[in-house]
Design a protein around this nucleic acid. Structure first.
Lengths: 332, 332
DNA sequence: CTGAAAGCGCTAACAT
DNA sequence: ATGTTAGCGCTTTCAG
């Protein structure tokens, strides 16, 4: 019957008051002898404080809601794992919600989290509706966006514009002139920013892209987009994330019988572990997950501590130069 | 101030008693007019019932603890997503814990879940210590194991022995005689069973394996194991899961300059989405995730409903024949 | 330092 | 069908 032991039972066994038991387990002041007696009794009875009752009183649940979508992109399982662990290390548990649709309705999910009295919410790769945002604010629940920018929220992203720009410069320096772009979902800030940085840098170099086709973070769409661009003459492709880039490489090689990078250079974004696998060896912009996670947790903790400022952190990552894109200038 | 509205506030505004409000929101009997008044008042005040307080009384939190390890194997993010969604569809929320180490200490994690008064626990790809098992039982918390067999627990797995056997038969039928096995972690029932089914079928065919080397679900170990086996003359490899099989294929092709399947046939296990990608085109045993998830949820729901029987469900899956292994008998 | 007493926000008898 | 009255298991004044 380990499950039904209350502080009262422990108190009786230890010969102290119920509040003494409470003090021992909540770390308030108590004499050595009381602590010893209580601990012993608790041990014998298999007592553990009821977190629900505690939260009901204190008003803090020490639970952080974590919303994630789009787990087929390996960037997110990885981020989820790190985020969840980092929060646990700070003494918070995570109530994770996985949302299916990429542009889907989060409102009910967030509402449920609020109902569960979460102390804070981390939303990865998803945006929040205005109504919900207002609700969180009214409830005093801090929200931090991970890998997603949105007006009015604390947020942590990589330097997506700079990353897109870096890819353009790299491709141009390698001698490419006929360059296409398979864009990430333009409903996401990350997709937009990468595309924007890329096209702007291309423009500055005086190059008009062969085309910009939507990939929407979807493998099939990305493959079709790549085909369109290559048929239009593209000899280098910037793909909005690694997950799509793998599909593009497969399609180029196996469906279109082209060589990467001999016929077409491919560059991705994220640097997920797979990008380093020999089978793909993908040149890509690294998103420094670990540092992004640290920043996210830091932002959450400071918000939890009462800091109301809205921090916008951008973390830059290097271009990982591998074998999927031509490196040297070869006179065209 | 939407966050601090209580049922008492709603009661006052609606001109009814506090318990009337409670009844409306917990679906108990109430007259149409009361329901209308209460709903209206709640709407205006932005009231939502406090789930914590409710759980404290009812003793049921409607939260299921979900433990997952080993997220780098894409089988698990997928399973996690489906499991989490399926449980949500049944009105349960999921408190997800991600554990890092593959053979790691779950006890504290599970203990924390118990502290949070979870109604049940689903453990994916991990085993539980005896002490913990006793604890869950004492607390009356049902536990269902997903993709893991262990004495005394309700569990859902694929038919791992039959799967391993099927691979052996397939390889032998294709004319292979020098066959090696990169084994999954033998501390897991899945790893053991696959290996056992495979070696037993091989023995029945009168074939001694070239060798059985530990891969432990680790990419690097698997690659090294494969190299050892191939150097020892293996021309066909059964790899304990897809995640390792990809590493093996990469290593064979890029480090050892061998052709798959011309030089070496490779067969995996799981049929994760990547297995169907053109770059790998991996022949592998399908684990029917969706059906496994359904069975897991069904087992959990029945346990929650008071059924104490311990169900052991095994779900069989077909061998997905693709291009990574020789198909036809070619006289050696 | 410790015990007694008052709630946290809600559900569940119990009356009416 | 509705209001009144007890608590759920704990934290937190408040006395002593």
């Amino acid at each position: 019957m380990a499950g039904r032991v209350t502080s009262l039972d422990v108190a009786a066994r230890a010969g102290v008051s119920q509040s003494a038991v409470s003090r021992v387990f909540s770390g308030a002041s108590a004499s050595k002898s009381t602590i010893a007696k209580v601990r012993a009794a608790a041990q014998e009875l298999g007592y553990r404080p009821n977190v629900l009752a505690r939260s009901l009183i204190t008003g803090r649940s020490r639970i952080i809601g974590l919303v994630v979508a789009y787990l087929d992109n390996p960037f997110y399982p990885d981020a989820l794992e790190r985020l969840s662990r980092a929060l646990q290390d700070e003494g918070y548990h995570t109530l994770v919600f996985i949302t299916p649709e990429i542009g889907g309705d989060l409102d009910s999910v967030i509402q449920q989290m609020l109902d569960h009295q979460v102390d804070g919410i981390v939303a990865a790769s998803v945006g929040l509706g205005d109504a919900l945002a207002a609700r969180c604010r009214a409830a005093g629940i801090p929200v931090v966006l991970f890998n997603r920018g949105q007006e009015g929220f604390a947020q942590v992203t990589s330097a997506n514009r700079a990353g897109g720009r870096r890819v353009a410069e790299f491709l141009v320096n390698a001698g490419h002139r006929r360059i296409g772009h398979v864009a990430g979902w333009q409903g996401s800030s990350t997709g937009q920013d990468r595309t924007e940085g890329f096209t702007r840098a291309l423009a500055e170099a005086g190059i008009a892209p062969v085309g910009i086709e939507p990939g929407d973070y979807d493998r099939d769409k990305a493959a079709r987009a790549a085909q369109v661009l290559v048929e239009r003459g593209a000899e280098a492709l910037f793909v909005g994330n690694d997950h799509m880039a793998f599909a593009v490489m497969d399609h180029l090689r196996f469906a279109m019988k082209l060589k990467v990078p001999a016929d077409v250079s491919v560059v991705g974004y994220d640097d997920v572990p797979m990008a380093a696998w020999a089978g793909y060896d993908l040149t890509t912009v690294r998103q420094p997950v670990e540092r992004m996670v640290e920043a996210t947790v830091a932002a959450m903790l400071s918000a939890l501590a009462g800091d109301v400022s809205i921090a916008r952190t951008e973390i830059d990552g290097p271009l990982m130069i591998r074998g999927s894109a031509r490196k040297r200038q070869e006179t065209a």
